[in-house]
């Protein structure tokens, strides 16, 4: 501080010193925005509660695979006693491997991601209202937009945060299951079934792109928690139930299932994992290409809406 050579010299007063470094491009702000969003959600106990619930499905698959491997080592026995229970390994192997598909096949990972549907929907409803809705309601948006970045970067940052959550619930646990299966059975699993990794990643990418765009569009449109949840659940639950009623109940054309967006991601995900039409239950399904077209159309519509709102002034709120 100051000139220390002379005791009587006038002190150099502290004053504002302008930043002399080089600013990074606005795109570099995307990750900090996403990171802030992630921290906002991770701070909430409700999120951890929902995540713990979603982990139940993961744990069922995780220990299911483990149990299957253990029972297969006992396959020679007619019955195995675990505590007070007498179990027939053959029957359990059949249930775990064939019925629940915990056999490390493409169906394992596709079904796992599909069963996460409810939790993904609920967590994303929370994420939408916290990440974007709150910014509008509490007027935090000007804080972002007063920095040298545009609304596009703001939405990219929020989208990145949403994408992380989607993958945290679906892709990452599915990859963990893949690794677990390989570690339990054989290293060959990793080389022989490497296409499954690509399939899981592709399925994750389909979910990430479509759900992120839909969530951003609905959150920017509705802003408040309850309307957002109503729309979000209508898209993923009402349409699903309606599709089931129309196709399974009233025996209409399977193409009616195309209104169920989660089912569409399931079909496209199955195709990513190289599964044939026979691997789908219920069997009356539209073709995966049709499902992909619907998802693509919805994503483009959401993107167009976002582009329109980005140009509009009122997004500033």
């Amino acid at each position: 501080m100051g000139d220390s050579s002379g005791r009587g010299a006038a002190p150099e007063l502290l004053h504002y010193r302008p930043w002399k470094g080089a600013f990074r491009p606005p795109i570099a702000a995307v990750w900090p925005i996403a990171r802030t969003g992630l921290l906002m959600l991770l701070r909430r106990r409700l999120f951890w509660g929902l995540y713990a619930l979603s982990m139940m499905i993961f744990l069922m698959y995780f220990f299911g695979q483990y149990l299957l491997a253990w029972f297969q080592t006992q396959a020679g026995e007619s019955r195995v006693v675990v505590g007070l229970l007498a179990i027939h390994p053959g029957e359990l192997i059949e249930i775990l491997a064939d019925k629940l598909k915990l056999n490390g096949s493409a169906a394992t990972y596709r079904n796992y991601i599909h069963y996460q549907g409810y939790m993904v929907m609920i967590v994303l409803a929370l994420a939408g209202s916290v990440l974007i809705g709150n910014d509008f309601r509490y007027g935090s948006l000007p804080f972002y937009l007063s920095k040298p970045l545009s609304r596009r970067h703001y939405l990219l940052g929020k989208g990145l945060a949403v994408a992380v959550f989607i993958n945290l619930l679906t892709t990452l646990p599915a990859l963990a299951l893949f690794v677990e299966y390989g570690l339990i059975y054989s290293w060959d699993h990793f080389t022989r079934n490497s296409y499954l990794v690509a399939g899981i990643l592709a399925y994750g990418a389909v979910l990430t792109v479509s759900l992120t765009l839909i969530l951003l569009a609905t959150a920017v449109w509705l802003r408040r928690t309850v309307p957002l949840i109503m729309t979000w659940t209508a898209l993923f639950l009402l349409c699903r139930q309606l599709a089931t009623s129309l196709v399974d109940g009233l025996h209409l054309d399977p193409r009616w299932r195309l209104i169920d967006l989660w089912n569409n991601t399931w079909l496209v995900g199955g195709a990513c994992l190289q599964m044939g039409p026979e691997a789908f239950d219920p069997a009356s399904q539209p073709r995966w290409v049709e499902a992909a077209l619907v998802l693509g159309g919805v994503s483009v519509a959401c993107l167009s809406y976002l582009a329109l709102r980005l140009r509009a002034v009122e997004i500033v709120g």
Partner: peptide
């Protein structure tokens, strides 16, 4: 105290 610190240059 302020005057003392400035005049005698105590850190």
């Amino acid at each position: 105290l302020t005057r003392l610190v400035l005049e005698e240059w105590f850190e």
